[in-house]
Design a protein around this nucleic acid. Structure first.
Length: 799
DNA sequence: GCCAACGTTGGC
DNA sequence: GCCAACGTTGGC
């Protein structure tokens, strides 16, 4: 196996499954070729040219497909003849869905064999539960030019389970996640005919019949059928439904018994690269035929292969039938009837199910789509799109297949795949559907028949809640809808021109109660300040110990006096995290004993939490009052850099104290791109280094007495500005300073009077302001009241 | 133990 | 289809 091929083989199972989800219905993938790198169209520096090549019928001729088909068959035929093909009616051994699980004592030999198979699969495909390496799964994709790579990933869980995402990697390492991004990266290249999903350029909206590039229509067709499979009963009887039901024959299938067969093959391994992209794009339909474990073509999928229909002889029953182009490629084409017959056979898809609906909960009993949820709406809006189960009908306490022995035989067959959860989850939602009663769906109901002694609704039964657990939904940060645009997380966002690496919510919008501490506005400072995280609001960082060492010790050590369950990320998720009221914070954070420098200013300093609240809501004229309210309400916690109040430093000269403050600020993490320097005076000057910031022209000057002044465009902010109202008159602590800076970031600079058009494009733009310009105004305003009034006055005067 | 990075998933 | 952002993990 070539290096590339070896690399390719390490495709996460998820991606393999993806092929099923996305193409499986009309393209149930077969094991791959030996050299995946050859799969994409011939390299070309010119995407267009490459596209044309890719569209060249000669390149995707039936003969070629047949050749590939034969490879598969050969590989199967290459199996040791003495070993009977593994029949997929036959129950699988105890599932080995979790590769981490040890074999249980008493497991049968077949189980062990299965495990071995699993291990082999790991070796072959590099399946593993741990995160797929970023470098894995990429396939050279010269369609876009030399050096481009492509990757497909299937969502493993959630309501969009099975959905496939396609990524591209540019030669420069740009990771492209959408067409929009691709256009950005490939500026200058006409991508109007580039089909992002399939990764090919198409000519016109509908690709040539023989070109076999996937089209949206076909996509939808497939999806539509897929949804039919999910929802309808009768329809599931059709060969198409089998097609849909048939999971990928790609890795995931390979994982199951079919995989085992292949693994037993002396030739199979190298031919099952799951990430053969070209094969993905080839709409091959290979289904495991129940009795033979052979992939067989499906009966025609309407219109998919167009004129290629021809009369074929069913390899199973011998009757003639009209087959498609693909059928024609099969050594053993199968007629629709035989496919229909196979409906009574347990479909391999169920083998991957890890979750099954409880059958008892409200969701399971709900037989009617609500029509209101996102999934229903999605269905209404896109009838052709893949059907998503009404969220109100989703089992709220799905049963997880636990351990061997706890599940009926159907489940015991499965779960060789270590990453099966997504399909399982899918099954959960789908299988609870009451209409799933015929044909394949019977299998689902059968699957609910399980020993329930192992039923569990433990960690994952609320997996769908997990994404909500970082938001209380009540605090001001949660209610805030607007990104600050200046914090590091905002700057990282593509919409702010960032590279999307951090992918975190604006710091100002991190839930004050449940967000991870390190995501909170001041979190970055924690380590550098040497502060213990519990000082801060928000939840402690999780410790994803999992297979790593236990976090118990850390918790004991660190949390003993904080009573702050650090492991909550995992442990708490089962319990309902009680929203902490503000007093809770004061108690829980337990600051006083450990941090004696709690300010006893006249302005007692809010902790970050309350401070946040304050900032978010009290930047107006009424701020002082509210500020006081908040202070009354919340026990105040400060950071430790209370220099002005430190008796030990009372003898220090002012400049030295200012230096101390500077040092404190340097040790701290300031709001993004604010920087503190010492300037003549001495004065401590805080500047916003980002020209993109609204505060690019704003400075804060702190004198040795910690009195401060804010200037905008070198003009001092009027003392009556509300900003001064909500902050202490002296900025004696780093917290004070940070608080002020954060407040500043919530303003924009008044744009003054409207400039004349004549200045457009040339010459310096001179802003004209009212003498009493506020300079800093709310973000939803353009000019301050004074400038506005002046402008009106001028207009009136001209008239 | 921390965090950058990013896979993944939910929402629109 | 796209974006937002949660959760995880490898690397340090």
């Amino acid at each position: 196996m070539s290096e590339e091929a070896a690399g390719e083989s390490k495709i996460p199972a998820s991606e393999a499954v993806e092929e099923e989800e996305d193409q499986g219905e009309d393209t149930v993938e077969s094991p791959k070729t030996d050299n995946p790198s050859e799969e994409p169209p011939a390299p070309s520096d010119d995407p267009k040219e490459a596209a044309e090549k890719s569209l060249d019928p000669a390149e995707n001729t039936p003969a070629e497909a047949k050749e590939e088909e034969e490879e598969v068959e050969e590989e199967e035929e290459g199996k040791p003849t003495g070993e009977p093909p593994m029949d997929w009616f036959e129950p699988l051994e105890d599932d080995n869905d979790d590769p981490d699980e040890e074999s249980l004592p008493g497991e049968t030999e077949s189980v062990a064999g299965s495990e071995r198979a699993t291990r082999q699969l790991y070796q072959i495909y590099g399946y593993r539960r741990k995160r797929a390496h970023p470098e894995e799964g990429w396939v050279e994709w010269p369609v876009l030019g030399q050096g481009w790579k492509r990757k497909e990933v299937v969502r493993r869980s959630g309501s969009s389970i099975g959905q496939k995402d396609v990524y591209y990697l540019s030669p420069r390492g740009d990771r492209v996640r959408s067409r929009v991004e691709l256009i950005t990266v490939l500026q200058g290249t006409d991508l109007t005919q580039f089909e992002y999903k399939s990764g090919k350029f198409v000519e016109g909206e509908i690709p040539p019949v023989r070109g076999r590039p996937r089209t949206k229509k076909r996509y939808r067709d497939r999806s539509s059928s897929e949804s039919s499979w999910m929802d309808r009963g009768d329809g599931a009887e059709t060969p198409d439904s089998h097609h849909r039901l048939t999971p990928n024959i790609t890795p995931r299938n390979v994982h199951s018994n079919q995989t085992s067969v292949s693994l037993n093959s002396s030739t199979g391994e190298s031919k099952q690269s799951p990430n053969s992209e070209e094969k993905q794009s080839e709409e091959k339909i290979r289904l495991p035929f129940p009795s033979s474990s052979r992939p067989l073509s499906l009966p025609s999928i309407k219109g998919e292969f167009g004129s290629e229909e021809s009369t074929l002889i069913c390899a199973k029953c011998g009757i003639s039938f009209t087959g498609t182009w693909y059928d024609k490629q099969r050594k053993r084409p199968c007629c629709p009837s035989c496919w229909a017959t196979s409906k009574s056979i347990e479909h391999p898809l169920i083998r991957f199910r890890k979750w099954i609906p409880c059958g008892q909960c409200v969701g399971c009993h709900n037989a009617i789509d609500c029509g209101q949820c996102a999934n229903c709406k999605h269905g209404l809006q896109s009838p052709e799109a893949r059907k998503r189960l009404c969220r109100k009908r989703r089992c709220i306490c799905p049963i997880r297949k636990q351990s061997p022995g706890s599940i009926n035989v159907t489940y015991k067959r499965s779960f060789v795949d270590p990453v099966d959860t997504y399909e399982d989850s899918n099954d959960v939602t789908e299988s609870q559907h009451p209409s799933l009663k015929s044909s394949d769906t019977e299998n689902f109901s059968a699957n609910v028949d399980l020993d329930d002694d192992d039923m569990s609704t433990d960690d994952d039964d609320d997996w769908h809640k997990k994404r909500k657990r970082r938001s209380c939904g009540e605090c001001k940060a949660c209610l805030c809808r607007k990104d600050c645009g200046v914090c590091d997380f905002c700057i990282d966002k593509p919409k702010f021109g960032g590279s999307n690496k951090k992918r975190q919510k604006c710091r100002l919008r991190q839930c004050q109660r449940q967000a991870m501490r390190h995501l909170l506005p001041f979190q970055m400072a924690g380590a550098e300040l040497g502060l213990d995280a519990p000082l801060l609001p928000g939840r402690p960082r999780p410790h994803y110990t999992y297979s790593r060492k236990s976090s118990l010790k850390r918790s004991q050590d660190q949390q003993a006096d904080m009573d702050y369950t650090d492991d909550d990320d995992d442990d708490d998720e089962d319990s309902n995290p009680q929203p902490l009221n503000h007093s809770d914070f004061g108690v829980r954070n337990g600051v006083p004993d450990r941090f004696p420098h709690i300010s006893n200013h006249n302005y007692s300093q809010p902790d970050h939490h309350s401070q946040w609240d304050t900032e978010k809501s009290h930047t107006g004229r009424n701020a002082p009052k509210h500020m006081e309210d908040d202070e009354d309400e919340f026990p105040m916690i400060t950071q430790i850099f209370s220099l002005a109040e430190n008796p030990a430093e009372s003898g220090m000269d002012l400049e030295n104290q200012l230096m101390k403050l500077l040092h404190a600020l340097r040790s701290s993490v300031l709001p993004i791109l604010w920087y503190a320097i010492m300037v003549e005076g001495p004065q401590l000057q805080l500047i916003q280094c980002s020209k993109q910031s609204n505060m690019a022209d704003t400075m804060v000057l702190i004198d040795p007495g910690f009195c401060y002044q804010v200037t905008v465009q070198k003009q001092p902010l009027l003392p009556i500005h509300p900003l001064y109202d909500i902050h202490p008159s002296r900025l004696g602590t780093a917290t004070d300073v940070v608080s002020l800076l954060l407040s500043l970031e919530r303003f924009v600079v008044c744009q003054g009077l409207t400039t004349k058009q004549s200045t457009f494009g040339k010459g310096p733009i001179v802003l004209e302001r009212a003498a009493t310009c506020d300079f800093l105004i709310k973000k939803n305003e353009r000019t301050c009241a004074s400038c506005k009034a002046l402008q009106e006055l001028q207009i009136h005067h001209r008239e």
